[in-house]
Design a protein around this nucleic acid. Structure first.
Lengths: 224, 224, 224, 224
DNA sequence: CATGAATGAGAGTTCATTCAT
DNA sequence: GATGAATGAACTCTCATTCAT
């Protein structure tokens, strides 16, 4: 069987497997609609009704794929974190792992900048993150799912941590620094996203760059 | 008549003045109820109905004191910012203005810590701030009121900025640093408040102290 | 199977068609309730809550069938205009179109009387018309719907206009006369409906008959 | 006592009389405010709150002068009817009473036109009239007040009736004709005011003139 | 006479969710 | 799996009116 044909032929699946696949596809379709709505109308404008309509379903149908509105958001956030990880990985693509000090410094810059820029450029993804952060714990989000999302967030920050360690920080130091960096980014993004940063006539990207520079210096000092 | 007795006597007020006072007291009473509700039930659980009930009123009565729900929030936030300023001022009480380098370093620490601790200790005040940050612009919040609230926020950070300048930073540098510090605090507080910081097994207060230490070093370096 | 039996059998409908039919029936049910409320309690007494209760629904359910209260009124008015047209058509049933001068005079009388009597006998339909006349434009009533309602009103008056033309009036004259007749009817109905006509110890039906007589004479004179 | 002094000196009144005068003046002041509000914002926009504010009072104070909102409207309508009468009288000023046939025809035209134009030019006065016409009977309007208002309305139409009689109509005929004319005017005004007359591409003033011409002809015929 | 405070009833509307079919 | 129908609990806000002071 030639290769092209292989690509064109859908894989033979047993009945239950095919059903699972189709179900997944439909769930994805709903998710696509949800994303479109959320990115277009924001948190306030997003309702099950709207999502259903956009997906070509009736509201009730959504509950075939998601147990609650919160679960939709969680799925959306999961997706968002995947995109975040992809963005970070892409930034590091040429040199996936730091071989020397120079590579490590470079990776620190690239990974951190990619992280920051992802949210700076896609404010709706930030909203999504905040929705999780805030009132969501109560219901809809199992702790298992919560952990999974946390893991993907940490994955996105792993290259930064790795670089800091490559620059000579201990595990403990690196962990503290990556946490601080994450907090700094979040703070700047929030200030920027809500327009509060205008109060100070500052630009979040410049402040983040400055923070990174200092971190670099600190890392240098530590390893000297 | 001895002086103490004079102090004990409530001041004689003209009729309109007394009425104004009483009206203010009632408005304050509503505000107290609103604060209680907000601190107890959070943003989601706060409604005009609930506030009214807590205050011993019917919903309509609230509108004698506040034009809209947003105005209630704005007032609540205003109060919160006053408390913030008071906390910062209290921390600096002994030496209101830095006379020398040592005082300045001390003021930087005290003011920044007071700012951070206020929100770390009173997470609902953070929520309140976030409500302002987010969807509020649309209506209910005149830009004049918005500016006034911003001003009080900046007031709370002014001692930090002042200390940085006293340590030899230019206006521009100090402004950038105070913005960064604010962002760092916000980021840490958010991470802490939403429990995300547990992901990193870090404590926001320690991270903030570390940040402050570095800032102090930077300021020292600059002025050397 | 005999023909009558065939008629008795409800038509087989496809699923979606049956559902549409049932949905329409439910909408009609709501409309029936709305009409009952409106006819019983008038404009002031009509509320979504009351309609819902009368229909055996919760208020929210009404919004499955009508987008707004105004839309309910518009539908009610639509119905009313259908009844008006039916009343006029019924009055003219024997001779749908005037063949000669005598028929035309007869049609003028019958159509105009039917129009007038419809509203004289059903004052709530007049209220409904007034609701359209007044504040409704703002929202809930698309200009398309507005035009459709206007069209049905004009349909109801068309036989009068037709008769006038058959009696020798030009298009322009007939249009002016039918407008005047409409206005006269409206004026008398309002006076009658609001009891103001008692002031003059007159009966609106007699005055309308007199008006019609004069119109007939004018039409005769014109064609002599 | 010189004349000018007499004009400048307010009349000496006994205490109760002075109080009555002042009370009347304040009531008038409220009424002025009410009129301003009503003419500016219409029925929908008029509330006791708004009237009170405009008058420099609190809502409760209005009830010192009027027993209910309806009573305010009634008073407003009373005023309006005075203006109507004044407008009709002014139109007839040169020849207050018809001496001959020519005068009578002239008076018919002038009085009827003045009546019609008053409402055509002051649509808010028409609204006021309609408010009385409609839901008002229930409360707030004593039958005595109702009669008084009716009387003033009839006064405004009296010159028309008088003219018709002067042209040879019997009392009965004249009464019927004036009622019909009133109804015609009302119908045209309503159609015009609500924009419905556009449906027919007609102008209410022209139609009213035509109606008047026909009435004149009828009156001529009757007296020949 | 006027105020200031408050009532109470009600308005229209929205929405996540449930469930029989 | 999906529909269509409906729930029910909220929501903010408006207003005429009352009444002690």
């Amino acid at each position: 069987m030639p290769r092209t044909a292989a690509l064109a032929t859908p894989p033979r699946l047993t009945r239950p497997a095919r059903q699972k696949t189709m179900s997944d596809a439909r769930r994805q379709h709903v998710l696509d609609a949800a994303r479109a709505v959320f990115f277009e109308l924001g948190l306030e404008g997003t309702s099950i009704r709207e999502i259903a309509q956009r997906a070509g379903y009736t509201p009730g149908a959504i509950y075939s794929y998601f147990a609650s509105k919160e679960e939709v958001y969680a799925a959306l956030l999961g997706e968002s974190l995947e995109r975040l990880n992809a963005a970070v990985q892409e930034a590091l693509a040429p040199t996936p792992h730091p071989d020397d000090r120079h590579d490590a410094r470079r990776q620190l810059q690239l990974a951190a900048q990619a992280f920051f820029s992802f949210y700076a450029d896609n404010p709706r993804d930030l909203d999504l993150g905040f929705y999780l952060f805030q009132g969501m714990q109560p219901r809809g989000l199992t702790s298992e799912l919560d952990e999974q999302l946390n893991r993907r967030l940490r994955d996105a920050l792993a290259p930064v941590q790795e670089a800091l360690q490559a620059l000579g920080m201990t595990d403990t130091e690196a962990l503290a620094e990556v946490t601080a960096l994450f907090a700094h980014a979040v703070g700047l993004l929030v200030l920027s996203h809500t327009g509060r940063i205008r109060m100070f006539r500052q630009k979040s990207s410049e402040l983040f760059s400055a923070y990174l520079r200092q971190l670099d210096e600190r890392a240098q000092g530590r390893s000297a």
